[in-house]
Design a protein around this nucleic acid. Structure first.
Length: 348
DNA sequence: TATATTTGACCAGG
DNA sequence: CCTGGTCAAATATA
């Protein structure tokens, strides 16, 4: 497979998708003799090149400075000119309110839910001169955590590439300290049960920041939640051991989708395998996914623009999406992710 | 029944 | 008065 240096990322990925289909068709067609093994290895090597090329294309596509304005610690670097600029480049003076709250950082991302936190949607607003509604989320890990985020789907991003979302984070997370404080208080009150209270959160937090393989994985796969990392570790372990991993539990204590709420836009761009579905190869060699209801669908739709994907899934799975709004991203975001399984806190 | 989401109403700033 | 942001009652869901 020769790659055109001017090829678009979507074309390269489409080529990789096709390669994968052919490899799978080869693998299931018959027991592999030496020629078959050679062919499979050739497909595998081409797939590796596709991944490498895609990664280099992603890295070389220097995103707008705004995208890089945040950093991993969640604290903005000091800007030379403190006056922010609006979307059209105008210099704007921050309002009193925004000065009090302090915008932590902004991001443009195809997956606005993947930031390691749980969010609860508390509002949705149609914004002038924007095709899509803006969504408002509050941190759901602790009722007194003041961290918020706004998610706005960008007008661009149609075609075969996934839509992009502008995510504005407001206020620092205080949920870590608040939960530690709560835990300490609970331990004082009931030493036997306190340690169980946030036991799983501890696992998640340790996994996220505690070193080892979980620390390496984000560099390999480009970020993701602890659960995604866990799934990745499971898959890697399965590859090494030659077994098939079972999907992670979806609720009952362990957060099924730690940072994807049902209303979080672009949740439909999560790789389908993460949603407890099974894969098969159709007669024509194309990969097909089967969801919990037995409806089969083409995983390509998971990477299509939201409108296309929703339209497709509406047809095949109407009962699950009867309330979807076709004019914006939020209404059908539960096409893949389940809702929050852990009701972290009640409203005051 | 508990919890999450939706959505119209309300409020503050410009 | 217009707009963005938030609230909270109603509704949906597990």
């Amino acid at each position: 497979m020769a790659f055109d240096p001017d090829a678009k990322l979507s074309d390269v990925l489409a080529g990789g998708y096709d390669l994968n289909n052919r490899l799978q068709a080869l693998l299931i067609s018959r027991p592999l003799d030496s020629r078959g093994q050679e062919a499979a290895m050739a497909f595998s090597q081409e797939l590796s090149r596709v991944f490498m090329l895609s990664l280099s294309m992603l890295n070389s596509n220097a995103v707008a400075p705004e995208v890089r304005s945040g950093n991993s610690s969640g604290v903005s670097a000091p800007a030379k000119d403190k006056r922010a600029r609006s979307d059209n480049g105008e210099v704007v003076t921050p309002s009193k309110k925004s000065r009090e709250e302090g915008v932590t950082r902004k991001e443009i991302t195809p997956s606005p839910h993947k930031d390691g936190y749980q969010w609860r949607k508390y509002g949705q607003k149609k914004i002038q001169n924007c095709s899509f509604s803006r969504y408002y989320f509050k941190c759901n890990r602790h009722r007194r955590c003041e961290a918020k985020k706004k998610v706005q789907q960008q007008d661009g991003g149609r075609g075969r590439l996934p839509p992009m979302f502008k995510v504005t984070y407001v206020n620092e997370h205080t949920c870590h300290e608040l939960r530690a404080h709560d835990d300490a208080a609970a331990r004082m009150a009931s030493p036997w049960t306190a340690s169980r209270h946030h036991a799983l959160d501890g696992v998640v937090d340790t996994a996220r920041g505690g070193g080892g393989l979980f620390d390496l994985l984000p560099h390999i796969v480009g970020g993701g939640s602890a659960e995604e990392n866990e799934a990745m570790v499971s898959c890697l372990a399965a590859v090494v051991s030659g077994s098939v991993p079972s999907p992670p539990p979806r609720s009952s204590g362990w957060p099924a989708a730690p940072e994807a709420s049902a209303s979080d836009p672009a949740a439909s761009f999560v790789p389908p395998a993460a949603a407890g579905r099974s894969a098969s190869v159709a007669d024509d060699g194309a990969m097909m996914m089967v969801d919990d209801t037995g409806v089969s669908w083409d995983p390509w739709w998971s990477f299509c623009p939201v409108e296309e994907a929703a339209g497709h899934q509406l047809v095949t799975n109407q009962n699950h999406h009867r309330d979807m709004h076709m004019d914006d991203a939020g209404g059908f975001a539960d096409a893949v992710w389940p809702e929050h399984a852990c009701g972290a806190w009640r409203r005051a």
